[in-house]
Amino acid sequence: MPAKSKAQQMAAGAALAAKRGEKKKSELKEASKSMEKSMTEKELEEMASTKRKGKKEHVSKS
């Protein structure tokens, strides 16, 4: 599943780094912390590798 915004893509990258042990889990913030717990490494990798061109910074929650 591709990321819908730059923020989501960056959060997935941070969660992926923590899952791989490249970053401390305690350094994660809200979205990336829940992503790290609920998604597999493959899902995170797919979301983090989404191209940023044409993506919005943030997507509204509605």
Rank of each mutant, 00 (worst) to 15 (best):
A11I: 15
K42F: 07
Q9W: 05
T50S: 03
T50L: 01
K53G: 05
R20Y: 01
M10K: 15
A31T: 12
E57Y: 05
A17D: 05
G54C: 04
S49H: 08
Q9I: 08
A17H: 09
M10A: 11
Q9L: 10
M10P: 15
A14D: 14
S34Q: 04
E57A: 09
A12H: 11
V59D: 01
K61I: 04
M10G: 13
V59I: 05
G13T: 11
K33F: 11
E22S: 02
K56P: 15
A12V: 14
K19P: 07
A15Y: 12
K53I: 06
A11T: 14
K33Y: 09
E22P: 09
S34G: 00
E41D: 11
G13V: 04
K4G: 11
G13R: 07
V59M: 03
M47D: 08
E46H: 04
A3W: 06
K19E: 07
V59C: 05
E45G: 01
K23N: 12
L28I: 13
A14C: 09
S38M: 13
S32A: 01
K23Q: 14
M39R: 15
R52G: 15
S34F: 00
A7W: 13
H58R: 06
K33T: 13
M1L: 15
K29H: 10
E45T: 07
K37V: 11
A14S: 05
M10S: 14
L28C: 02
S34E: 02
